[in-house]
């Protein structure tokens, strides 16, 4: 029940973030939607994801506010509101109907416990010694995945630094 309330709240916040006129209000609505996602993770009993979501959301809101604080770009609104509204409603109807038929078919969350995940859940503590099953999976059973994730993050940081570098390597004379 609470999860539905939070989902409706997040949809309202996301719609407001998409439709409002100035950038700061849109950012605040976006961060409210992210906070709702954090609460949803807490209700679904995933505190690892909730901590990460909260913290990452704080840092991206700070970066976005810092980047947009004096560049309040006006939005382009021409006279195509009829086409926009009709296409948005059409796509909403299509996606909701597909979601209705697709979500009827999927099993209950985590219900048929697969063989590999059953092994992880039952003997994760003895094999790794980690009481937190999430980090036991991500850093021991699937540590190659964590290595690739670290590589992706490092490459992204290097890319940002290479693009936004102030001065070149060769000093101008």
């Amino acid at each position: 029940m609470e999860i539905h309330l939070i989902l409706i709240f997040m949809i309202c916040a996301a719609l407001f973030a998409a439709e409002t006129k100035d950038l700061i209000s849109s950012l605040i609505a976006l961060s409210v939607a992210g906070l709702g996602l954090c609460l949803a993770f807490l209700i679904l009993k995933a505190p690892n994801l909730a901590i990460t979501q909260l913290v990452v959301e704080i840092i991206y809101v700070i970066i976005l506010i810092r980047a947009t604080i004096d560049k309040d770009l006006p939005l382009v609104r021409d006279g195509r509101w009829l086409f926009n509204t009709v296409s948005a409603m059409l796509f909403a109807i299509v996606f909701l109907s597909f979601a209705y038929f697709a979500l009827k078919e999927i099993p209950v969350f985590g219900q048929p416990l697969m063989r590999v995940s059953n092994e992880y859940v039952t003997s994760g503590l003895e094999k790794t010694g980690s009481a937190n099953i999430v980090s036991a999976i991500t850093l021991n059973f699937r540590s190659f995945d964590a290595l690739a994730e670290a590589a992706v993050l490092f490459t992204a940081i290097i890319g940002v630094l290479a693009i936004t570098r102030k001065t070149g390597k060769i000093d101008e004379k």
Partner: peptide, 18 residues
């Protein structure tokens, strides 16, 4: 305490950066 409770390297690293 990433191996004992919720948390871990990514979340803690972001908190240090914050």
């Amino acid at each position: 305490r990433g191996h004992i409770g919720p948390g871990g390297g990514f979340a803690g690293g972001v908190i240090i950066a914050l």
